[in-house]
């Protein structure tokens, strides 16, 4: 159902054109301003930037949870007017339902998204098998009947990932999904997420503070300025897949991370200076 005609495959799947977002009335906080970016179908994009640069606002715009104040947003070839139904989301907080066991937490989207919703009752066994398969993929076979509080933080985050993918969304939005985890678990989940992405080929947007995470996972990295956020540079990551922890010691990898780190340091310095000079565009 997600197969686009060949000639559309190169069109942007997510397209922001001169988008601004202001919270509240005209005097409200300007979170984003002049955001231009496009992401191709099946691409893995990462958005990095200093804290408070409006990364989470960007998520809300792309999923249609929040309307843009200015500019146009198109996803899958159509303008975004309300909450999109083709997305999956995962956050820093796993937001699992504590009264449901792992399996039923993962199956939550199936109870809401069509066409699964009307088929769920008739083909329950098939959907259970599907949920068990994806849980096994992230290494959680045998934990189906455990409740969230019985799982570690990393395991909960895996469940959250499974839940965001069970209905096979075309667009996966991740808002710092691994930020609350310890370094070892985080690196392990990078690999889990990469495997899922390689297997299912969805378009993915990852919002993160972690530059190594962005470089490990993404095909393209957008660097945002301090508030009001806009895209100040775009980096392609051409390190071959599947990437491993060894890839993170690759000189090309280190170079990208260093470059982005320098850019963000520059942005932070500028945003602290009293009179703010115009940030130079350095699109690569």
């Amino acid at each position: 159902m997600t197969n686009l005609p060949q000639n559309e495959a190169n069109d942007p799947f997510v397209d922001f054109s001169d988008v601004a977002l202001r919270y509240g009335d005209e005097n409200g906080t300007l979170a984003l301003s002049g955001v231009d970016l496009s992401i191709k179908k099946g691409q893995f994009a990462a958005i990095v930037g200093p804290s408070g640069c409006g990364k989470s606002s960007f998520m809300k715009l792309a999923t249609g949870l929040c309307p843009a104040t200015e500019g146009s947003i198109r996803v899958a070839g159509a303008p975004v007017t309300g909450p999109l139904k083709i997305t999956g989301m995962a956050f820093q907080n796993p937001t699992l339902l504590p009264w449901r066991d792992t399996l039923r937490n993962v199956m939550l989207p199936l109870e809401i998204v069509q066409p699964h919703r009307s088929r769920l009752r008739a083909e329950y066994a098939k959907y259970v098998a599907q949920a068990k398969t994806i849980l096994a993929t992230v290494g959680l076979a045998g934990f189906e009947d455990k409740h969230p509080w019985m799982l570690s933080g990393g395991m909960q985050q895996r469940v959250s990932l499974c839940r965001s993918l069970i209905h096979e969304p075309q667009l996966l939005m991740l808002d710092e999904p691994f930020a609350a985890l310890d370094a070892f678990t985080r690196e392990e989940l990078w690999s889990v997420l990469q495997d899922l992405w390689l297997e299912k080929q969805f378009t993915c947007i990852l919002v993160t503070h972690d530059l190594r995470e962005a470089a490990y996972l993404a095909d393209v990295i957008f660097v945002m300025s301090a508030r009001p956020g806009r895209v100040i540079s775009t980096h392609r990551v051409d390190i071959p897949r599947p990437r491993t922890i060894e890839s993170t010691f690759d000189p090309a990898f280190v170079e990208i991370v260093q470059k982005i780190r320098a850019e963000i340091a520059q942005v932070r310095k500028e945003s602290k200076a009293p009179a703010r000079p115009a940030a130079q565009e350095q699109v690569q």
Binding site: K60, L84, M89, F91, T95, E111, I112, S164
Partner: peptide, 23 residues
Amino acid sequence: VEPELEDVLRSLGASKLDVLTKV
């Protein structure tokens, strides 16, 4: 109810009634 949880459901296209009964 945590706003993020509501976001998860709304981004799936859940109606107000869905959010009420599921969460």
